[in-house]
Design a protein around this nucleic acid. Structure first.
Lengths: 206, 206
DNA sequence: AAAAAAACGTAGCATACGCTACACTTTTTG
DNA sequence: CAAAAAGTGTAGCGTATGCTACGTTTTTTT
């Protein structure tokens, strides 16, 4: 939370924008885009409505700014799980655990749901989100798989398709439950079991 | 569209309710719950706003009625694909094709998105939807798998988990794309290839 | 065909929202 | 320290919504 001490002090304007963005993230994730009130954002962030509008132009502009700043990089911790020197079993297990942890963490979950609920009205933004988020993650998993194929550790025809299948197996029906708000409480043991099952199934078929 | 000739003529009131429900389905799927206007529903259905409110009580009541009538049974064609005497390869292939066809058909798609977008505000309804929709479908797939296991045609430890994994493989990353409105155009050949891949992967690991 | 019930349609209430205007205060800058 | 720029708070406009009231018309029932 404290700014890095080496950098020059952020101009006041930047701080204001930050506080607006933080509050907007809260309000948007709690209420969704339509139900969220700009006045509520100002109420939480401090500052004034006029300033917010000077910075972001509109409610939509505020929403876009929020998504750009946070949602785009929300998948990054998952991608970091993959290193080409890891054996398939280990790499996939690490990847799987992080993916499930991410999907079930309330904070990331709320943002995820916000994006899925409200991004369909902004096609360009949706495409960019897909490219820098889920698709990029899938791409990196596909690259990892391709590398393992090159090392003769796996036999896979279409690595991109296989990547989708593996993540699909991991997630299974969690997706639907999450979207309708019925997020299941999965114990750590259950998550691990799920990951192990998907990894085993994937490896014995590749 | 024409009512079955054997039945007694539906009372006028029922017809009114039907037209309201049909129009509401249209408007809700086009605009989502929040953005939809009750007046727009009346404009399309004919009749009067007062009558609609006498029938359904509120906008929310109208929404619930729409979901109850249509969304609950939207998964049924998929379940019909499974017959216990089918060999695993054939049963899973049939099931997979219907699932993909359903997920990519615009009409069902719109309803599906409506449900996922707006059902999280109605927890009881959400649970009932899950139970009579996706969960029931998964349950029937699990039963089919269990039957095949009993026939020594498959080896599966947890059939319910396996059912989720299979459908997850089929859907892969389609779910996210659908939710953000970037529905891919999958040719029939691509869909079949996807199904074949998932079936092969599933069977070689079971 | 008369009486009872239901449907109609318009008009409007109450409310909440996104957004702007404006007079005022605080902060930055030369 | 003074001029200029940026920020603040309030008040309100325009609009759209969900919903109700009510006098009239249509449909149903006997």
């Amino acid at each position: 939370m404290t700014p890095p001490p080496g950098t020059t002090v952020t101009p006041k304007g930047q701080q204001r924008a930050q506080r607006f963005l933080d509050a907007a993230l809260e309000v948007f994730t709690e209420q969704g885009f339509e139900a969220a009130s700009v006045n509520e954002v100002v109420r939480r962030a401090g500052g004034s409505l006029a300033t917010l509008y000077k910075l972001f132009g509109s409610k939509e502009g505020l929403f876009i700014a929020v998504i750009e700043r946070r949602a785009m990089s929300v998948f990054e911790p998952i991608q970091d799980a993959l290193a080409n020197d890891l054996l398939p079993h280990d790499g996939l297990t690490r990847f799987g655990r992080r993916l499930l942890d991410f999907l079930l963490e309330p904070e990331a979950l709320a943002l995820y749901r916000l994006v899925l609920n409200d991004l369909h009205r902004h096609p360009e933004l949706a495409r960019r989100f897909l490219d820098s988020g889920p698709f990029r993650t899938l791409g990196e998993l596909a690259d990892y798989l391709a590398h393992q194929v090159a090392l003769k550790r796996l036999v896979i025809d279409d690595c991109r398709l296989a990547a989708g299948e593996f993540t699909g197996m991991l997630i299974g029906d969690l997706h639907i439950q999450i979207m309708v708000g019925q997020v299941p409480t999965l114990s750590r043991a259950e998550r691990l079991r799920r990951v192990d099952s998907a990894v085993r199934r994937f490896l014995t078929s590749a």
